[in-house]
Design a binder for these strands. Structure first.
Lengths: 259, 259
DNA sequence: GCTGGCATCCCCTTTTCTTGGTATATCGCT
DNA sequence: AGCGATATACCAAGAAAAGGGGATGCCAGC
């Protein structure tokens, strides 16, 4: 009953090139899953203080007006809770994630007066790039449709991906691919090592490291190390995971089961 | 057929207080969903550099040994792709997320030789706190179980949440916050400007810029500019949007449908 | 066989960054 | 009134990076 909704949503996203398409698909999925409203936000880090990059919703006008005019986004407890959860959460469980002030409760109450009761919010992050939320809400007095929550998690995530693509992740400049060695040098540089240190680590001459970095800069058409690292990071050639290291305490399942 | 697996997994997680419980639940769900292997990684929330992360898996010993002994985690393309996706992705679509070097392809090939074919990896983030991945893989030559992918997305997310809870200290973001001026200098530095250029832009002395950057480095306890910028980026103090410049847009669905 | 990409090494100069100091003035808070 | 944080400015020594030359092998593709 819910799988079909998700699959239908995926099908509609295939052709979604505009926000309008996404909004329509979300509207449909929201109803099919047993929710009354949806709201999708996607912000770029540069607009931390200002507006989200994308804001789609079918909330009642009244609530939207209140929310925007009082700049409630800045104190929205749901938004705060998003920073505490890797998966979607019901608003009923907000208190398990964050402490709720009186103002927070008041804000939720005002939402109820405007026709927004309980909700399920799906947060997603791309560290250093963007973050977004997709919320599905029901009218006051109604319960969240339990069978629809898993589907909401999927639909919300996919909607955010779609929004990101529509929004302009499409700006994918020419991918300057580095050689493996160039990437190695770049990576150790990103980890804070100097060329000399990198040379020792890689077992090659410092001059060679400098040379690799030099050519890497030429590839990306930048003139300094910071920009090289940031470009490579932005284009996905390296990731934060590479930089900060996942020195893992390794537990194979066999070892766990033996104990 | 898949909903039941997810619900069963949720049920088992209720009582999961140890890594072992989680591992067993994951093993069961993996099989039920039609996958052959799973691997879960979770970076430690407490500190980036030294502290351990969680790594649970039932990969073939051979692959685990190769992966660890050659420090392949440092160049794993799947991990890099995680930094580019808000939802799970099939390894077949790696190239849509990141450029693959020759070494990357080779690494995937070695994985196949060790019994790891295609995979579906679910990345999740809590910016400034932790990050994790949950991968479900099949043997070489086999296709990913399509009906199980949505369920894998849910199971993976829930497994990561569970791992985070088991792991304990889910608190303390403990970000080093910079002063406004320090952030300004940092930002222009990230944009590729030298201290002298930044000084002209901000209308202050070059020495002052150097001083701000110096104190910012102390705050983050790093000793070079690259690490400073990357730390600030990772912790969300600056974003790619600030560096490369994006534009914000706002659309309500009503406005979209009117057009 | 030749060319181009790759990896390795070496030289040089100039610019920039890092690190250690010192110093003044403002602002907010107690 | 004093303390701490902030912002501003300066100096000097040494390390590192940037930008410009070279050079040698190896390997794959045409």
């Amino acid at each position: 009953m819910c799988i079909e909704v998700v699959e239908g949503f995926v099908g509609e996203l295939q052709d979604a090139n505009l926000e309008k398409d996404l909004a329509l698909a979300l509207t449909k999925a929201t109803q099919q899953l047993g929710f009354d409203h949806f709201a999708l936000t996607l912000e770029s880090p540069s607009s931390l203080e200002t507006a989200p990059a994308v804001l789609l919703h079918d909330y009642p006008d009244e609530w939207a007006r209140v929310y925007v005019s009082f700049d409630l986004a800045g104190r929205d407890p749901v938004r705060r809770a998003c920073d505490k959860s890797m998966v979607g959460f019901s608003w009923q469980k907000l208190e398990r994630l964050i402490p709720l002030t009186r103002g927070d409760r008041q804000m939720l109450a005002v939402g109820r007066e405007c026709g927004i009761g309980d909700g399920y919010t799906v947060p997603r992050f791309l560290p250093g790039t963007t973050r977004g939320t997709c919320t599905f809400a029901v009218a006051p007095g109604q319960e969240l449709p339990k069978p629809g929550l898993f589907a909401a998690e999927i639909v919300g995530g996919l909607a955010l991906v779609s929004a990101l693509e529509i929004c302009g992740d499409a700006g994918r400049p020419a991918k300057a691919v580095l050689s493996d060695r160039q990437r190695d040098c770049l990576l150790w540089s990103a980890r804070g090592k100097t060329a000399a240190e990198t040379a020792i680590i890689l077992g090659i001459s410092a001059e060679t490291v400098v040379q690799h970095l030099k050519m890497a800069r030429e590839r990306y058409d930048v003139h300094c190390r910071q920009s090289l690292i940031l470009s490579a990071l932005y284009h996905g050639l390296i990731g934060f995971g590479d930089i900060f290291g996942w020195r893992a305490r390794t537990r194979s399942i066999a070892a766990l089961l033996d104990s």
